[in-house]
Design a protein around this nucleic acid. Sequence first.
DNA 1: ATAACAGAATTGGTCGGACCAGATGCTTTG
DNA 2: CAAAGCATCTGGTCCGACCAATTCTGTTAT
Lengths: 236, 236
Amino acid sequence: MNSVKKAPVVTNKELFIRKMTREILSGKWNPGDRLPSERELAAEFGTGKTVIHSGYEKLAAMGLVDIKPKSGVFVADYMKTGNIETLNAIVRLSGNELSRDVVTGILDLRLAIEGMAFRELCLCRSDEDIAHLRAFTSVIRDIANSAREEELAEYFFLWHREICIRSGKSILALFMNTTHDVSIAFWVNYLRMYGISFAVNRLEQFVDYIEARDGEGAYSLLAEGISDYLARLENI
Amino acid sequence: MNSVKKAPVVTNKELFIRKMTREILSGKWNPGDRLPSERELAAEFGTGKTVIHSGYEKLAAMGLVDIKPKSGVFVADYMKTGNIETLNAIVRLSGNELSRDVVTGILDLRLAIEGMAFRELCLCRSDEDIAHLRAFTSVIRDIANSAREEELAEYFFLWHREICIRSGKSILALFMNTTHDVSIAFWVNYLRMYGISFAVNRLEQFVDYIEARDGEGAYSLLAEGISDYLARLENI
DNA sequence: ATAACAGAATTGGTCGGACCAGATGCTTTG
DNA sequence: CAAAGCATCTGGTCCGACCAATTCTGTTAT
C-alpha cells in the first residue's frame, strides 16, 4: 500500500482548473456570472494567457463553464446544460462521498440501461457468451483478495460493461463508458457495504439467469439489488 | 443557447482535427496504430507544436485517440472504449445520414431514459408543470413554419429535455444533454418523415397523459412512436 | 435630447518556438 | 550475455505576440 504515486509537479494549469472547479461547484459563483478574463487571471496566477485559456477550455468540456468567443467566460447552469463529464467532475471533486440524490439518479439510469442490456442478452446469448462471463467471474474471484479497492471496482465495472457489449447494442456500452468515473465511485462503496464474496456471487447469479434466457429474472435481480442498496443508504 | 457555430475562418487546428477525424473514422488507421508525433505533424502542417497538441487533446476528448504521455499518440478502439462524444463526432462527420444500427441504439436509449422520466413526472407533476409544457408546445407551433430545420429540431430536443428536468431526476437531463448532436440529427429526420403538425400534436398528447397522471399511457405512446419510426426506416 | 455611428479598448482564439521531464532504445560496460 | 548509462525521442507546459470579433465609449448628426 505504499502509494508513492505521482504528484511531484502540480502545473499551473492543473492548479487553475482545480481552483475554478471548486469555486464553481461550491456555489461561490452563480450560473450566468461572468468570470474574470483570461488576461486578468493570467496576471493573478503569474502565468501566460495560454495556460488560462487551456484551463477554461477544459472547464468548458466539463460543462462547468460557457465560453462566448470574443465576449467572455460565464458560469454554466451545469445542472441543466451539463453533461456526464460534469457529473464525473463532481464525483472527482467529492471523492467517493456522493450525495444521495446523485446516487439515486445514477442507479435509476443503470437500471434503465443495464436492465435493457440484460433482456437483450438473454434473447441472443450464445454458449460462448456464457463461457466468457463465467471465466471473467472466476478471474475476479481469484484476484479479489490481492487487488486494491479501486482496481477491483474497475473489474466489476468491466464485467457489467461486458453485458452491454455482448447484448449486441453497442450504444449501451458507449453510455456505460461515459459513466466510468461515477461507476467506480459507486462500486467502491458497494464492495465496502456488501463485501467481495457477496458481490461475486451476484455476478454468478446473473450468469445463471442469462444462461436460462430468463431476462425478467436478471432484471428483477438487478432491480432488487439496487433498491436494497438504496434502502441501506437510507439507514446511514 | 448555442445554435449556430459557424466558423468564418478555418484555423489550422480545426483543419487538423477534421483531417484526423476523417482518417480515423474511415479506417485508414487501425486501433492501436501509432500516429505521427506532434513535431512531425507540426512540420507537415507548417504550424507550431501547440496547434497539433491542442488538436490531439480534442481528439482524445472525442475518444478517437489515446494519448500516452511522453510516449506517443495511438488510435483508440473507439467502438469499445469510446463515449457519447465519439458518437457525436461520428454524427457530425456523417451529417444527418445515420446508419440504422446507430439510430436503433439511440432510440432504445431514449425509450429507456425518457420513458423513466415520463413515469416519474406523472407521479409528481404540478399544475405549473402542465402550464409550462403547454406554453412550450404553443411556442413550437407558432414558430413551426418560420424556423429552419435544425432550429426546429433544437426546440423538440429542448421540449423532451424539459420532461427529464421536471421529472425531478436531474441526472436524466444530463444524459439527454450528452446526446445533443445525435438527437438533433434524429429530429431533423423525424420532422421530415412525419411533418411538423403531426409532431406537434404528439407533444400535446404527451401533455394530456401527464396531466392525467397516466405514466403507462405516456410510455406506450413513446414506445409506439419509436417502433413506428423504426418500421418506416425499414421500408426505405 | 436622442439616436446613429466611428473608433478605441477588451475579449477569446490562434500560433510558433522554447524549455521541461518522463519514456525509449541504443551503446557501452561489467 | 545481461545490466547500467546515456543520447534521443516523446508529449506537457508555458510565454508573449498577433488576430478578429465583440463591446464599450465618446462624438456627431438629426
